Amino acid sequence: MRTAEQVTFGGSGLNRAAQIRGDAAALAQAMADPAARCLPMWRGKPLLRGDGLDALGLIPMDHPVLAAGLGKAIRAPVFLGLEEDGAPRFAHDLSRWEPEELDYGALGSFVDRSEQRHPDLPEDMAFAELRRVMTALSPRDAELAATAKAIIGWHATHRFCARCGVETVIGHAGWQRDCPDCGGHHFPRTDPVVIMLITHGDAVLMGRSPGWPEGMYSLLAGFVEPGETLEAAVRREVMEEAGVPVGAVSYLASQPWPFPASLMFGCAGEALAREITIDPVEIEDAIWVSRADMMTAFAGEHPTIKPARRGAIAHFLLQNWLADTLN
């Protein structure tokens, strides 16, 4: 797919400079660089700035807020990479900070519109849900935010050694955790997920999960199992969720999806039949949607169907299917 890397969180080309991670002198030099900047994260939310919160709220490495509110799993900034001009970029977890007023219900909602403003940061900066702003960010800001969210989220859930249970320590500038007891090394986890554009004639197979906004449908998706190819995962997931057999499968594009730690593999598949038998444990509903109806849904004019969330690879694939630009 020629436009594959135009998907949200893709195509920025960030220089991750992995050679710096294990070099203590180079890392110290990067942290002391006057051009270095840090992205604070609060419970998975990046710091954003501006009236529309459409840019990352990067702050200097010596900003006092970085020393005042460290996360439980991380005691030092995570090195993200270098900009084109060599300026280092880091991320830091401030999840220990407790806002004076906090709506816990909003934090767990499908669309979290709550904002948290730290008293020691400029008034035009706020922590906000990444899915809410992801389409407004530049490709570089989106990649930095996705990387920071995924790596800090991994630290929060992998504090202890999976081999012996002892609390691990951070190494390689945040890209490794080491066990001081058994010597085990642990690395950031990414879960492969297939998401499928399954078509039959001029119709595409769509499904919805419980709890989604009324009328919202998206492409079927599921985790790849151990010992399974992407193609096999596509056929298994579609059969399990919708009871539809799939023939030829091809790869289209991928998207990092840090909610919490997935890599979405967008695939196309040809259905061998249209009859649907859903598994109610897996999904709430599945339907075939014609190209004409999907175009109406994308225009916001369909009476019952709302398209997949903008910024998600499902929306990207459907948009290219409608435009006949999948190849």
Rank of each mutant, 00 (worst) to 15 (best):
E123F: 01
G184K: 07
L121I: 09
T199H: 10
R113M: 11
C182D: 09
E143P: 00
I151Q: 05
V111M: 14
V166E: 15
V224P: 06
C182A: 09
R140V: 11
D202V: 04
V133Y: 03
W154Y: 07
W212R: 10
G183N: 01
E228S: 09
M206E: 12
C164D: 14
V133G: 04
A126G: 02
H158N: 15
V193W: 10
V193K: 03
H185E: 14
V193Q: 11
M125N: 00
W154N: 01
V204L: 04
A142C: 03
P119Q: 06
V169A: 04
C182P: 02
A128V: 03
D141F: 06
T157A: 13
A142R: 01
E228T: 10
K149W: 00
I170H: 00
C161Y: 03
I152Y: 00
P210F: 14
E228P: 11
G184H: 12
W175I: 03
L144Y: 05
D191N: 12
E167H: 11
L121R: 08
A150W: 12
G215V: 09
R163M: 13
G184N: 11
G153Q: 02
A145Q: 11
M206N: 08
M216L: 10
Q116H: 14
H118W: 10
G174R: 04
R131E: 05
F127W: 01
G227I: 08
F110C: 02
I198S: 05
P139I: 03
G153P: 02
A146D: 07
G183I: 03
C179T: 08
A162V: 10
K149H: 07
G174L: 02
G171H: 07
V193S: 09
R208H: 01
G201M: 02
D202R: 11
H155I: 05
M216G: 02
R208G: 01
